[in-house]
Write a protein that binds this DNA or RNA. Structure first.
Lengths: 102, 102
DNA sequence: TTATTATTTAGATAGTTATCTAACTATCTA
DNA sequence: TAGATAGTTAGATAACTATCTAAATAATAA
């Protein structure tokens, strides 16, 4: 696959890449939907899926790298929560994609 | 990968899948950016990329299936153009994802 | 009708990603 | 400190996707 650099994309386009790729997976969108209700530890999330913890962890890493979620430690648990601000940004970005003149 | 059915997703979620997957690729976003300026035939688009026509055609198929573009024939050429309405819908969908209460 | 141009489809391949099991790290508790 | 709980990292594998070349389809021109 062509890299971002190959296509001469800037930092904003690169982060859009990550964001859309993160949102493209149904498991990850389900994670986001769960976190929309309330922040959750990994084990609490895991109840809702038929995948192993390492797989879930993999998806969390992708969402983290896309800036869509954050976490903090509470004792032995890692509590994940939604980053609301970046969603608005992506929605704006997408909206502008149409309405902005070049 | 888990299918949409496995996750019990509805038709809207499934189309979101396609949309985000389509937008996740930088080449496809570049196609959309080009079409934002004006509708183009495949050969006209091809000038802007270092990939073969079959590869470009592959990307166009994905964008078509996601509902993001359409085409019409003009003689020997297929003229592709942006579907503006679906972009607004995705932007709205994304915006609601945050702001809507469950 | 034959050749040419425009584009897609088919089939193969290489790179990426989602998944698993096994092993590791971090925190808490006894 | 030893054991238990919570989660991540490592390494392997199977499925998916982007790409290519070659062949097929569609419309036009000679």
């Amino acid at each position: 696959m062509l890299s971002c650099q190959t296509l001469g994309e800037g930092i904003i386009a690169m982060s859009l890449n990550k964001t859309f790729a993160a949102l493209a997976d149904p498991t990850r969108r389900k994670i986001l939907t769960l976190l929309k209700r309330k922040e959750l530890s990994v084990n609490e999330m895991a109840i809702n899926f038929d995948i192993t913890l390492p797989s879930l962890s993999h998806h969390l890493t992708i969402l983290k790298n896309a800036g869509l979620i954050s976490y903090r430690r509470r004792g032995q648990q890692l509590i994940y929560s939604l980053n609301l601000s970046i969603f608005e940004e992506v929605a704006k970005e997408l909206y502008n994609f149409f309405n902005k003149k070049i």
